[in-house]
Amino acid sequence: MKDTRIAGDGLVLLGCGKMGSAMLAGWLGRGLPPTSVWVRDPNPSDWLQAQGVNLNTDLPASPAIVLVAVKPQMMADALPELAAMGNGETLFVSVAAGTPISFFEQTLGAQTPVVRAMPNTPAAISQGITAIVGNAVAGDRSLDEAEALLSAVGQVVRLSEEAQIDAVTGVSGSGPAYVFHMMETMADAGEAEGLPRDLALQLAIATVAGAGALALQSDDDPAQLRVNVTSPNGTTQAALEVLMDQTDGFPALMRRAVAAAANRGRELANG
C-alpha cells in the first residue's frame, strides 16, 4: 500500500474480528508497515499478536485514518474516546452495520470526514465487494483513501447517497447467506433424488462457485448466461419454469428477502 499519508500518520483499526483481521491481512500483504498500524481489540487473537502492529497501546493524536470495525452495540462505548480526533484531518471509515453517518458526526463533530462502508463476508478471502458513501465533509480524497483501504479485500463501489446502504445490505451484505442456503437446498434436493448427501453437497457447492466465477469472467450478463445453458424443452428449462414462476419462484421470493433485509437495516439505523 503506497499511501504515504497512511504510512506516515498511521492507521488505527478499532476492532479486529473476522472482518478487521481480513482487512489487516490485506493491508500488510500490500506492503503497509506493521509499525504504522495501531489496533484496539479487547480480545486479540494469537494471529493478531504476531503481526508486529501497535496493539492496545496509546494511539497517535491525528492518524490518517481510523477504521471502525467494532460491533454496533459496542459503538457507544468505543467511539467517544476518539472524539479528540474529530473535526480534523483524520478520516473515519466505518464498516459497522446499522450505524449511520449522523452518529459519527454527533459523536466526533460535524466537520469530521466520515465514510460509511458495507462489506460482505467473502472479504475474508479477498473476494468481497464493499459499497462506500461519504458525508459532505469527505471529498474525493477521502473516498479515494477509503477505496484504497477496502480494495485490499475485494471490489469497491461508490453510492450516490447513504439511503442506498440498506439496499446494498439486502443484496450483497446479507447476500452470501442466501447463496449458502441455496447450496444447502440444492444438496437437499439432490439427496431427495437419490444422491448420497456428501456427493450432493459437493456438486451444489462446486456448481454455485463455478457459476459465480463464470459470471465474473464472462462478457455476458447473468440473463444471457442463463439462456446459454437452457436448451429448448430440455432439463434446465423444466427446472427454470419452476424457479422463474412470478408467484412462487425466485423473482417473488428474492424481492421479499432483499426487502426484509433492507427494512431491518433501516430499523437498526433508527434505533
Rank of each mutant, 00 (worst) to 15 (best):
A209T: 03
V229E: 12
T90W: 01
A76L: 07
N233W: 07
P119C: 11
D9K: 10
A97F: 10
N228F: 12
L143A: 07
G249V: 03
A76Q: 15
I129A: 15
Q49N: 12
L28G: 04
A261T: 11
S94E: 05
E193L: 15
V37F: 06
W27Q: 05
M186D: 10
A110L: 02
M254F: 13
D3F: 03
I205S: 14
A209W: 05
L48W: 06
P63Q: 09
W38Q: 08
L216G: 07
T230Y: 14
A50H: 10
A192E: 11
E161A: 14
L195H: 12
L268H: 03
M254T: 08
M19F: 07
F250D: 03
S45G: 02
G212M: 04
L203M: 14
T236N: 08
G109H: 02
A22P: 00
M182D: 00
S174D: 12
L240S: 14
A215V: 05
G170L: 02
L13R: 02
L240M: 15
Q111D: 12
V115H: 06
L59E: 12
A96Q: 04
S45Y: 01
T230C: 15
G139S: 09
L32Y: 13
V95K: 03
A187R: 10
P119R: 13
G29V: 01
P232H: 14
N54H: 14
E161D: 15
P232S: 13
G17T: 08
A189P: 06
G29D: 09
L67H: 00
V157K: 14
T121E: 07
G139R: 11
W38E: 07
Q111Y: 00
T247W: 02
V95C: 07
S94K: 08
G29H: 05
W27L: 13
A110R: 06
L214Q: 04
T121K: 07
K18W: 04
S126F: 03
R266V: 13
L149Q: 09
P122D: 01
M254V: 14
F180H: 01
I125S: 03
A83M: 01
A262H: 12
D219C: 01
M182E: 00
L268Y: 06
A187D: 12
V156R: 08
P251Y: 08
G265N: 11
P44N: 04
G210L: 11
A124F: 02
G194P: 09
L225N: 09
A123Q: 02
C16S: 10
A200C: 12
M186A: 13
A97H: 11
P44I: 02
K2S: 02
D166A: 05
T4Q: 14
P72V: 07
E81I: 09
M244W: 03
E145N: 09
S172G: 06
A177E: 13
V258K: 11
L28N: 02
M244K: 05
R266N: 03
S45A: 03
E241K: 12
A206K: 15
T235N: 07
D41L: 04
L243M: 08
A192R: 14
G190L: 13
L82C: 00
D198Y: 00
Q73S: 13
P113A: 11
G154C: 04
M186S: 09
E162R: 10
T207A: 15
R264S: 10
G210Q: 08
D248A: 12
A124T: 10
N270W: 01
R264G: 11
G17I: 12
S172M: 02
A167I: 10
D41F: 05
G212I: 02
